[in-house]
């Protein structure tokens, strides 16, 4: 029953848009509902990437700590987006902190479980790789814009 509910939620999430039923069933076997209160961390920089999150509700800040400056938010994510993309690529470690800005409801996906299924079924692995790569490319583009500092006086 619960698995069916999860499968439906996963099907409707934009990260899995267009994924076939058989693959959705495999993914949902690794998934669970999770909830984070505002201010709580989904994960921290340097920790093993054990679980990634598909946001259903609420907002999450991705942060880096710089000595003497405190946390610097470089991106916020909301409904329909994925928190954590390092789970598919070695060394499977988070590269930043992810903190709930509001109450967050999400689907947590056990990364080791899904990685195993990707290894066992490369068609599934390829689907996951395409989706993660697409998110990485989007983030690379926006990071380039941030680095350009287009609002500076050379803008």
């Amino acid at each position: 029953m619960e698995i069916e509910g999860l499968e439906r939620i996963l099907r409707e999430h934009s990260f899995f848009a267009g994924l076939g039923d058989a693959f959705l069933a495999l993914v949902s076997g690794c998934a669970r509902n999770v909830r984070f209160e505002a201010g709580h961390y989904l994960f921290h920089e340097g920790e093993p990437a054990n679980e990634f999150y598909l946001l259903r509700h609420g907002r999450v800040a991705l942060e880096l700590h710089a000595p003497g400056r405190g946390p610097i938010t470089f991106q916020t994510l909301g409904e329909g987006e994925i928190v954590g993309v390092s789970w598919l690529i070695p060394p499977y470690r988070w590269a930043y902190d992810a903190r709930a800005l509001t109450l967050v409801r999400a689907i947590g996906v056990d990364a080791a479980c899904l990685r195993q299924k990707c290894e066992a079924d490369h068609d599934l692995g390829y689907e996951m790789m395409k989706r993660v790569t697409s998110v990485l490319i989007q983030r690379l583009q926006t990071t380039r814009l941030q680095i350009l500092d287009v609002y500076g006086t050379h803008g």
Binding site: A61, E63, R69, G70, P71, I72, T73, F74, Q75, T76, G78, G80, L101, Q141, T142, L145, Q146, D149, Y151
Partner: peptide
């Protein structure tokens, strides 16, 4: 409204303005 970078006291969006378009 979104900003390119923020410290912890900002609770709005962070990210370049183009990220608001698909949302």
């Amino acid at each position: 409204v979104t900003v390119d970078h923020a410290l912890g006291d900002w609770h709005g969006h962070v990210g370049v303005v183009t990220t608001l378009i698909p949302r």
